[in-house]
């Protein structure tokens, strides 16, 4: 029986931290005993250029090393990229979009031109409020946990404590945990 991988594609601009976010997602899934992959698509990106990153999550060791073509989830870190055809390439009927935006679901739906499930979360705003910096990564992890169940809030929290605990003050770690939880609570989906 071929293994089933849960596949995620991230869209962001270089410098927005999508690579780190995808790695944190992988680590959070690892906390749950899953097998994971996280890899960006490399070009000669300079700050601001559109970029992609990918995740695979599975219950068994992951063998495939090609890029993700039909993602189960598409994450959009920067809503100014909505409308870019790359965002909908290879999407399936049941592909879920999670978009960092202050706009509503209808707006996103129209921009993307798809009929599937769409979730929105004002991740940058939440990050600014909680962490005082516009880095949406931890908020997005919370949203992903809620929408997909690929990771749990607990595993993400554990990972944030491990990763950030080494480098930052307790205050910053707690701010990120709050951001994570708010992502979980405040993400809104259609259907």
């Amino acid at each position: 029986m071929p293994a089933k991988y849960f596949e995620i594609r991230w869209h962001a601009r270089a410098g927005q931290g999508a690579k780190s976010a995808s790695q944190m997602l992988a680590e959070a899934a690892l906390e749950m005993g899953k097998y994971v992959q996280s890899f960006p698509e490399y070009g000669a990106e300079r700050t601001g250029a559109p970029m992609k990153a990918f995740n695979r999550i599975a219950d068994v060791p992951i063998l495939v090393h090609s890029s993700v073509e039909s993602p189960d989830v598409v994450i959009v870190i920067d809503d100014t990229m909505l409308g870019h055809p790359d965002l909908v390439t290879g999407v399936k009927e049941d592909t879920i979009f999670i978009v960092n935006t202050t706009k509503d679901i209808e707006f996103v739906k129209e921009k993307l031109g798809i009929s599937g499930k769409i979730c929105v979360v004002p991740a940058t705003d939440i990050a600014l409020e909680e962490i005082k910096r516009g880095i949406p990564n931890t908020v997005m992890l919370g949203a992903i946990a809620k929408v997909t169940g690929a990771i749990t809030l607990e595993s993400a929290e554990k990972r944030i404590r491990k990763t950030f605990g080494k480098k930052f003050s307790e205050e910053i770690v707690e701010a990120n945990i709050r951001a994570l939880r708010r992502g979980f609570e405040e993400v809104k989906c259609n259907g």
């Binding site: 992988a26 690892l30 994971v36 992959q37 890899f39 960006p40 490399y42 090393h65």
Partner: peptide, 12 residues
């Protein structure tokens, strides 16, 4: 080991 695919990809 394959450049980028393995060198930069995160795996368990």
């Amino acid at each position: 080991f394959d450049g980028f695919i393995i060198s930069h990809g995160v795996e368990v």
